[in-house]
Amino acid sequence: MATTMITTLDRSSRAAARGLSDISIRNLFIIPTVLFLIVFNIFPLIYSLGYSFTDFRASTNAPANFVGLQNYRDLLNDPYVWSNFAITAKYVIISVAGQLLVGFGVAMLLNRDIPMKGLLTTLLLLPMMLSMAVVGLFWKLLYDPSFGIINYALGLGTFEWLSDPKMALYAVALTDIWMWSPFVMLLSLAGLSAVPKHLYEAAAIDRAGPFYTFFRITLPLVAPILMIAVIFRTMEAFKTFDLAYILTSQPTAELISIRLYKMAFQEWQTGRSCALAYIVLIMVLAITNIYVKYLNKVKER
């Protein structure tokens, strides 16, 4: 931990003797942040770990009873919860695949001399900067079966997007693709612009076809950065709450975060929701771990 760190930096100047030592400055700069995060992120998690072994309900004054692993056992045997995980997995796959396709595709199109390229890129990036909840709400109007512009533009008549149980999850994913394809595009553009030009020149001299050039030069060189985009979006899509919660109340689109929210703040099954939160937490940390490993790998290049 921070207190046991040693420093190797030492200034032999007169100033170093006058002011605080490097070790004190380092500790002064780092320890408050670490403490702050422990108090407001780690401590609450320890607190909820305790509750996850009880039948506590925050809506009543009844004391919490210790129930051991009962909550975890119940949750893992609950087909309802498993279906929430299945819905989440489906959602993650659809939305991340869509973002990868659209984002990388647009990046390929943009990766050339285009008039006003900077402005176009900035405009394309706008959706991902906006509030998911607030913009998501407006998509309700766009999806409206009778007067939404989506049905009008596509000539779909009164197609039900959000109130059809089969369609709701896809509609949420479509909005997510709209919001987050720009993210994949942004990272892809960075990857594409880093591919050395001489490789393409060499390929052109060798009369390599566009497919060969794409699969043998472009894709392998952009892959690491695409991987970062995919892992990051997977993690975020797995946590999705705002968009799905606002757009639809269809049980077929009930992602795990929404189940967790309902269990904790509508059904007030506090103890049990803490247990579910831990199951979700472990999954997220696993993905985060992979993500950080990849980040460091790309950084080293």
Binding site: F40, M235, L260, C274, V280, T288
Partner: peptide, 13 residues
Amino acid sequence: MLPPVVVAIPMFL
């Protein structure tokens, strides 16, 4: 990276 709802339950209490 923690999902907001996960942190929100203990913080709420």
